[in-house]
Design a protein around this nucleic acid. Structure first.
Lengths: 207, 207
DNA sequence: CGGGGCTTGTGAATTCATTCACAAGTTAAA
DNA sequence: TTTAACTTGTGAATGAATTCACAAGCCCCG
């Protein structure tokens, strides 16, 4: 299968969200043009994105909303339930733990881990906080698919090394650090500082 | 001035972080090669990125760490203090309010806004929470440069319209929504659902 | 049943981003 | 002073992503 660009996958995500919106409003078909307007892109882009995976539309008519939504869920792998653990039970960890979007999309948070004895044994938004010492053992037992990293930047690489060694293949990183891992491990980094500096740059260099 | 790609600006941010690291370790020069290794890119990429803004290095020697750091701060607009307000005093707002990276980089959080009477008048990590009703009035008085949006998805566009009308030119959005604003308003969106679905896709479509 | 009005799917063209490759400049050592 | 070892800065080449543009298919109306 041809390699799919990151930007394409992000747009597919966006399309799915719009389709779900249309679905609840009971609309049955949608054109690439409407999908594009909604997402700030072009109709050609929408059709090209979808064309990597098959042809789901009807010429002259557009796409069936429920069918396309289903196809996108399938493509994005949202059919099954993903097992998630959070490492780092601080403020960001707490914010993520209560985020409804997780469960809604089939992401099931099993546990959180921390090294602070005051937090271990308590609950974070209903999720048990465990000792980070048992991280490897628990990973081997619970087989989480995704690790969400919300530890300080200078501890992040260490945790990555540990969870990768224990068999984890996907990491969502909120630590402000450049992480290194084998190619078969998918890492997405969300870096607030970078986004802010992007805004700072935009404000500074406006023509 | 030639348009600078978003990806370039993000890398400049990363370079600056590495340089600060080198700075505290007392190193005085660095080559594009070392900078590249650290950030998972190539030396040619580093040099090309910097070349858009001038030539800061010495052939045969590399870059002066403090000088290049200074230049990057200047380019990214980190010399001045940016005034920030947070709209939405929920968990994510709280996590951001306590995030040290903000103040460290010159982002000064003035206030948070919410529509929940239980929150209004209290403090969020030391930052006053005000009634969202006074948002326009306060924006006109305090002239914040950046609005951080942490309201629910279906309220986000409404807040954008309000703050844009009041004169705000930069928005950092954490709501899962596609926002629309005039071209002279810079918007960066951080969408957790999208990142997670990117991981889900990667786990599903591994060759 | 035929024509007009839409809309898809996709090669080709274009635009944008990254990598290559090398002349030119710098340092240090002999 | 000459030479060897480095490293930058940058056009040119390559590669990737987006946009164009249009044939082909579908629906509806008369």
């Amino acid at each position: 299968m041809k390699r799919i660009a990151d930007s394409t996958v992000r747009r597919l995500s966006a399309y799915l969200r719009f389709l779900e919106d249309f679905e609840t409003r009971g609309l049955s078909t949608i054109s690439s043009e409407e999908l594009a307007n909604r997402g700030g892109t072009t109709s050609a882009q929408v059709r090209k994105d979808l064309s990597f995976f098959g042809s789901f539309g009807k010429r002259g008519l557009g796409y069936s909303v429920p069918e396309l939504a289903g196809r996108l869920r399938e493509i994005l792998g949202l059919g099954k339930e993903w097992r998630v653990v959070i490492v780092g039970a601080g403020k960001i960890g707490a914010a993520l733990a209560q985020y409804r979007g997780f469960r809604h999309r089939g992401f099931n948070i099993l546990a959180a881990y921390d090294n602070n004895p005051d937090k271990i044994g308590r609950k974070l938004e209903g999720i048990p906080v465990r000792d980070i010492e048992q991280l490897e053992r628990d990973i081997q037992r619970d087989k989480p698919d995704i690790v969400v990293l919300t530890v300080p930047g200078d501890e992040a690489q260490d945790v990555v090394d540990r969870v990768v060694k224990a068999g984890v293949k996907a990491i969502l990183n909120f630590a402000p650090a450049q992480l290194h891992a084998p190619v078969d491990v998918a890492i997405k980094t969300v870096n607030m500082a970078m986004e802010l500096e992007g805004l700072s740059f935009a404000l500074t260099n406006r023509e």
